[in-house]
Amino acid sequence: MDQTHARALEAIQPFVALATSNSATSPRFVANIVTNATSASQTYVFAELLETPTIQALAAPDCPAEYKGYLKLLEIFAWGTWQEYQETPNLPKLSAEQTLKLRLLSLLTLASTTKPLTYQALMKSLSLPTTADLESLVTTAIYANLITARLSPASTPPTINVTSVAPLRDVQPQSLPKMITLLTEWESRCGEVVTDLETEIARVKVNAQKRHAKEQAYRERLEDAVERRQAETARKGGNGMDGRAADDFDEDDGFVSGDNGESWSRMDIDEGSGVGRGGSRQTKRVVGRKT
């Protein structure tokens, strides 16, 4: 699409050169420039030609009435539509080449502003009598790289699905203040978004610093606790018994001391194994008595 725009700019240059030459002295000559420029196959942008003094001179009061309409005709080719041409009186008649060109340019505008782009709406806006004429026009636009589109005649309703449009329509001067306002509002919204993003970034950084400080403090407390635990363990002798020696505990030798100084073993041995005759358990004998 950018190449199409570059070719269109290049194609209009010979006509701009004619309009700025010393030969462009009569309204008739200037009108011929407009006719030839709008009929050429690769010319789709006309703003540069419109800005030349000789073209603008067609609006002068002393310009013959038969040539005044050529300025309006060139403006319609620059940013207007086929329907606008049909509704504007006293305009020059179009040749077959001009008719095709204006319909192609109008198709670009309609593809950018009308959704969905139905067969019926296009045929009405472009004054095309049959669907075959419409499909031929759309096919020409596709092969000329003016649009990227797909015909859907079997859909309900039949539509043309346009995915891209070449930037070939000029901007109407009266629309510039509105465009400037829209761009200013867009710039303001972009500034607000950037400010919000910067605020969010600052908040994330502050939270990250706080989290890092908290983790650092936790690690320091953990290391201090480990060091204190190790020091305490070393102070207690490393045996986990609060410094008490092993001989502080009474060793059980298996004997019991009596009141008279005698001692005996706490192990009892039965005289017999099991229950004796008569169903009574036999008497236990204490062994291991020592004096």
Rank of each mutant, 00 (worst) to 15 (best):
A8K: 08
A8L: 08
A8Y: 03
A11C: 08
V16E: 09
V16Q: 06
L18W: 15
A19P: 10
N22V: 08
S23A: 15
V30Y: 05
A31G: 15
A31E: 14
N32M: 10
I33Y: 01
V34H: 06
T35F: 03
T35Y: 03
T38G: 11
S39T: 11
A40L: 06
A40E: 09
Q42R: 07
T43R: 03
T43I: 12
V45Y: 02
F46R: 03
E48F: 00
E48M: 00
L50P: 04
Q56R: 13
A57P: 03
A57S: 15
P61M: 07
D62H: 07
C63T: 15
K72G: 01
L73N: 05
L74D: 09
W79C: 05
G80E: 02
T81Y: 00
Q83H: 09
Y85F: 14
Q86V: 13
Q86N: 07
N90Y: 04
P92E: 12
K93I: 05
K93M: 12
S95Q: 02
A96H: 00
A96W: 00
A96S: 14
R103I: 08
S112D: 11
T113Q: 10
T113L: 03
L117C: 06
T118Q: 04
Q120T: 13
Q120F: 07
L126S: 02
L126G: 06
S127I: 01
S127P: 02
T130D: 05
T130A: 04
T130C: 02
T131N: 14
T131R: 09
A132V: 02
S136R: 12
S136A: 15
L137N: 05
L137A: 08
T140E: 09
A141P: 06
I142K: 00
N145R: 00
L146P: 04
A149K: 01
R150P: 01
P158S: 12
N161M: 07
N161V: 12
V162M: 07
T163D: 01
V165F: 05
V165A: 10
P167A: 14
P167T: 07
V171N: 06
P173R: 02
Q174E: 02
P177M: 01
P177G: 04
K178P: 04
I180T: 10
L183A: 15
E185N: 14
S188Y: 10
R189C: 09
V194C: 09
T195N: 13
D196Y: 00
L197M: 14
E200Q: 12
E200N: 11
I201A: 13
A202I: 02
V206Q: 10
N207H: 08
Q209F: 02
Q209R: 12
K210Y: 07
R211L: 14
K214E: 15
Y218K: 11
Y218W: 05
E220Y: 01
R221E: 15
R221G: 03
L222Q: 12
D224G: 02
A225G: 11
E227H: 12
R228N: 15
R229K: 13
T233I: 12
A234K: 10
A234H: 10
R235G: 11
G238R: 06
D242E: 11
G243H: 05
G243R: 13
A245N: 04
D247C: 08
D247W: 06
F249G: 04
D250A: 13
E251D: 11
E251Q: 07
F255W: 13
V256H: 05
G261Q: 02
S263M: 15
W264S: 08
E271H: 01
G274W: 00
G276I: 05
R277T: 14
R277S: 15
G278H: 11
Q282Y: 11
T283F: 00
R289Y: 13
R289E: 08
T291H: 06
